[in-house]
Amino acid sequence: MGKDYMNYSAMVQDALRGVVRLALNRVAAQGLPGNHHLYLSFKTTAPGVDIPDYLRERYPDEMTIILQHQYWGLKVSDSGFEVQLNFNKMPERLVIPFDAMTGFFDPSVQFGLQFQPTGEASARPAAATPAAGEPASFVPAKREDTAPTAEAEEKTAGEKRGEVLTLDAFRKK
């Protein structure tokens, strides 16, 4: 096989991050409709990530936040988003570039995307549609990151996790 001078892998990653950007833009403009809630995983040490030092110390590699009941000030740009969440009953502002994202999951509709942070050589996007025989589960990094309420815990405790499949399964070999 020839060298990919077009860098299709990076193009697909950018396109899939665009899905997250569009979803967050809708949430910022209209709020979360119905039972939708979002798990957003990201690399805490990626360039442009701005989180409090104590959170970076607690999650030195990757962190998952949940947008469900208590979030404020969601702002989305072409390059990332910022949101305010409570951690130990203290409001904190987080700034997350889309390039730092490693996962996106909406358990209300079993939709998920998995990313490799930009710049990693083995960037392999994942689609949200499982195919027979080769599913892989997307499990958010650390569910306790946003300390969801007991009500939220009860709602999501019995939910089935979405399945994510790499696009490699569809490539001709």
Rank of each mutant, 00 (worst) to 15 (best):
A152D: 13
L55F: 09
P148W: 14
S137D: 01
Q110I: 15
F138I: 04
T118E: 04
A123I: 12
M11V: 08
V76E: 02
A100N: 09
V164N: 03
R161V: 07
A28W: 10
E57C: 11
E154M: 11
W72T: 11
P97T: 07
D78I: 00
N35Q: 12
K89W: 05
G80W: 04
L85T: 07
V27Y: 06
M6R: 09
T149P: 01
S41A: 15
K3W: 11
T149G: 09
N35C: 03
D168F: 11
G162S: 09
F98Y: 08
M1N: 13
H37P: 01
E62R: 15
A123Q: 12
L85D: 03
A28V: 05
G119F: 13
F115Q: 09
A147Q: 11
Q70N: 14
Y54C: 00
E154F: 10
S122M: 13
K3G: 00
M101F: 07
A127K: 01
L113Y: 03
R17M: 01
Q114W: 12
H37I: 08
K75F: 08
E120G: 02
Q110K: 14
V27E: 02
D106V: 08
G119A: 09
Q30F: 10
F87P: 13
F87S: 10
A128G: 13
R56H: 01
F105S: 11
R58D: 11
